[in-house]
């Protein structure tokens, strides 16, 4: 029987690659359309359809 793996890598956006396909600037720029008081970028949607 094959041993259970101890590490499993989950698919995520490759940030190093995004140097090439990112930076279009079309995404939301601040918290103003939602929470209004505490900006984070993690939950903002990527608007780049070309990547």
């Amino acid at each position: 029987m094959e041993k259970a793996k101890r590490i499993k890598t989950i698919q995520t956006r490759d940030l190093v690659n995004s140097i090439k396909d990112g930076g279009c600037g079309e995404c939301q720029t601040s918290c103003q359309s939602a929470c209004k008081t505490s900006c984070g970028v993690a939950n903002q949607k990527c608007e780049n359809t070309q990547k």
Binding site: I10, T12, I19, G23
Partner: peptide, 10 residues
């Protein structure tokens, strides 16, 4: 969004 989240510039 783990797979289509913000790019590094953002």
């Amino acid at each position: 969004d783990l797979t289509h989240g913000p790019c590094i510039y953002k």
